[in-house]
């Protein structure tokens, strides 16, 4: 089947099998490998992207379901030059170690700050509960989001 999806502002169009997951559309069809696959049960959140503004786990969305929609991935966060405030926050607060969960964390945090520009630590933890990190223990991720909020993400 044919799908048309706007990804990071650019319209893409591909002939795909209906079973193609959005994450594989991004990674394999478009070569946008910043979005990662960490599990098969929609637990880890590494594959989180924004679909029409909402954070979704792109391993649990068919590309067909995103047909006609707009997807934002980590590659588009700072497409125009300097880093986005969240990226700066993660860098400054050491909010990442191995970096594998980071793109998904960043996208989940993007939604979090759009919905709640000045979250408490507890709200940050709640906003990121769908994203597993095995390296940081989350403390510095919370700090990173707080920093970004202060900068006005």
């Amino acid at each position: 089947m044919k799908v048309r999806i706007t990804v990071n502002g650019t319209l893409t169009e591909r002939e795909i099998e209906p079973r193609t997951l959005l994450v594989h559309y991004l990674r394999d069809e478009l070569g946008l490998t910043g979005t990662h696959v960490g599990c098969d049960t929609s637990n880890c959140g590494a594959c989180t992207v924004l679909l029409d503004g909402d954070a979704v786990k792109s391993c649990t969305v068919l590309a067909a379901q995103a047909d006609g929609g707009a997807v934002a991935t980590v590659e588009g966060l700072a497409a125009s030059g300097p880093l986005a405030a969240l990226q700066e926050g993660f860098w400054e607060a050491h909010g990442l170690q191995c970096g594998f969960c980071t793109p998904g964390m960043l996208m989940a945090a993007t939604q979090l700050l759009r919905r709640n520009p000045d979250p408490t630590d507890a709200e940050i933890r709640r906003g990121l509960e769908g994203n597993l990190c095995r390296c940081t223990g989350y403390a510095n991720i919370v700090r990173a989001v707080r920093l970004a909020a202060r900068k006005g993400a």
């Binding site: 990674r27 980590v74 880093l83 990226q87 860098w91 400054e92 050491h94």
Partner: peptide
């Protein structure tokens, strides 16, 4: 010091094996 490996990791431009 902020980590030097981070710019590629926070922009999705790092290459892991599956990439």
């Amino acid at each position: 010091l902020k980590r030097r490996e981070d710019p590629r990791l926070i922009t999705g431009s790092a290459t892991y094996t599956d990439d």
